[in-house]
């Protein structure tokens, strides 16, 4: 289980190189990478977070995933600060003996990171900046777990 909250960019290829290394009981790895989408004239995004709580909240979500699925490894990286369209915001990786657990655990991690990890996005365009409002569908997505 690894959690990293950082301002700096990351390279998924480098992260995956050592992921679940040395485990011969892993048959499946799933990765998800989230990027800044340049909708509606977005110039850049600012991500604020709650240092201290962020790491704890993500670790608790990851621990929950490990309890629910038979994971051999998991990784969450989430950035904060100023990000331009096309930049990577975050990634999730899961490893399990079989693919169903790896896919489901990755979706679970994503759903919970959306609305239970203390990050707040602010979008800036040429005309101004606004905080991104939480979506009802993101809250509803937790119900299936």
């Amino acid at each position: 289980m690894t959690v990293r909250v950082q301002e700096a960019p990351f390279d998924p290829a480098v992260e995956l190189d050592g992921f679940a290394a040395g485990r011969t009981d892993t048959g499946a790895q799933v990765t998800f990478t989230g990027l800044v989408r340049g909708d509606g004239g977005l110039h850049h995004m600012e991500i604020e977070h709650y240092p201290g709580m962020t790491e704890k909240a993500i670790a608790a979500i990851e621990a929950d995933a490990v309890r629910r699925w038979d994971l051999t490894a998991s990784l969450v990286i989430h950035r904060y600060g100023r990000l331009a369209p096309g930049e990577r915001i975050m990634m999730v990786a899961t490893a399990a003996p079989h693919r169903k657990a790896a896919f489901e655990a990755a979706e679970f991690l994503m759903d919970y990171l959306k609305s239970r990890a203390p990050f707040w996005k602010r979008e800036a365009s040429e005309t101004g900046a606004a905080w991104v409002a939480a979506k009802d569908e993101d809250e509803a997505a937790l119900d299936r777990w």
């Binding site: 709580m53 975050m90 707040w120 905080w131 993101d138």
Partner: peptide
């Protein structure tokens, strides 16, 4: 609201709490 960095309810007691944080619904991911 979070009390000592754990999400809580508005009717939660403050006794023994050292840090209270207020923020809008989170928008991570």
């Amino acid at each position: 609201v979070a009390l000592d960095q754990e999400l809580a309810d508005f009717d939660a007691p403050l006794e023994g709490v050292r840090e209270v944080a207020f923020f809008p619904p989170m928008t991570g991911g």
